[in-house]
Write a protein that binds this DNA or RNA. Structure first.
Lengths: 205, 205
DNA sequence: ACCACAATGCCACAAAAGGGTCATTTTACG
DNA sequence: CGTAAAATGACCCTTTTGTGGCATTGTGGT
């Protein structure tokens, strides 16, 4: 029996979901909550296999909620439910610990399928959301840095000192400084850490 | 008409794919290649809507291939084809610029569906692969650093100097140094950049 | 009550990095 | 053929970091 708990402030939607889940073979709705504090207080006593969580909750948002719940139960599979597909919450939700992301008008049959999928180790999401996720993965194709500057930046991004970089690249430490000055100018930063941070955030490395 | 090009060294598989695509309504196989150099030389003259690329090519691998092709045609939609689902190539492929990732025994009908999906802005992949991708997104739940140390690390990761961090957190510069010493010990690093790099790679921030 | 740990602060010295200016050689492109 | 950009190297001086040791206060848990 696959157990599911719900967090959803709209009474009607919550009831419909519970009826759908309890009516399906092999599924059981373990608990229902109307807000984050309730689920946070109860979930360690009543832990379901899968948690369906609305994003737009009154008070603490669903995203804030999973930021608290996920560290409590790191292996819990959480599916976010949202009204709009193209929103900024996707990344926040996934970073915070959601494993799936569905829009609310997903068909009942598909919803049950997704719950089963996440339980079996998948990550159900629409193909459009998958594209957003994949795109955010990809390295920048345009890159102001020269190949040699990229060599230096890569070493910098593994925490190597100028001295070590110089030895590794068979150039003098002064040349390393030269390249780094050039990197700073192009990335518009003024320190080691800023450059590394920018490199990671802009997916240059 | 949705045009597709193929890169696949196995003659039989390539022919089957071409026949499948040309036989489907609205699809056309634009070109076929047996290795990466051929496609790299030709793709800017004959650019398809979607490129199907085998990973296990003789000579230059499919991943090396897209690392070259993607910068040439940043908007080209590339689907990787592989024999095994659970392999390390997934991340390398997606980072290098693939938008979809399919296993070779995908059914012909599903394959055509995926080509259509990627063309329409999706990212077709199995739900298991989606999970791998999502998991790699998520912040670490265990974290050796104290809350205050995380504050300092976060500032470090935006490239701020000790002086600025001290002002922002309303503590002395010496205390910032103290926290950073502690961070270095816990993360087992010995410099600014190493700490920032580790923070990003280990998803502490 | 005690212990571990978080958080705060100071001093001193060595090492590393940032910024400025200068110069030469090679390579790529029109 | 000339020019621009990339890659190389050097010197000087200031600021920032890294590391060591030392000390106080509060808090949570056993």
């Amino acid at each position: 029996m696959l157990t599911v708990s719900l967090v959803e402030d709209d009474e009607d939607i919550r009831q419909s979901l519970a009826i759908l889940i309890n009516g399906a073979n092999g599924f059981q709705c373990l608990a229902q909550y109307g807000d984050c504090p309730s689920v946070i207080a109860d979930i360690q006593k009543n832990t379901p296999n899968v948690l369906l969580m609305d994003i737009g909750l009154p008070g603490m948002s669903g995203i804030e909620g999973i930021k608290i719940i996920k560290p409590m139960l790191p292996t819990l599979d959480i599916i976010m439910l949202t009204s709009h597909e193209n929103d900024n919450y996707v990344f926040e939700s996934l970073c915070a610990g959601a494993c799936g992301y569905l829009i609310k008008d997903t068909s009942p049959a598909r919803l049950l399928e997704c719950i089963k999928e996440i339980y079996e180790g998948g990550s159900p999401m629409s193909t459009q959301i998958a594209r957003m996720v994949v795109t955010s993965f990809q390295k920048k194709t345009e890159n102001p840095l020269s190949p040699r500057e990229m060599d230096v930046l890569n070493h910098l991004c593994t925490g190597r000192s100028y001295k070590i970089i110089a030895k590794t690249l068979f150039i003098s430490e002064e040349t390393v400084r030269r390249h780094i000055k050039s990197i700073y100018r192009k990335l518009q930063v003024h320190s080691n850490t800023e450059a590394v941070a920018k490199a990671f955030r802009d997916k240059l490395v």
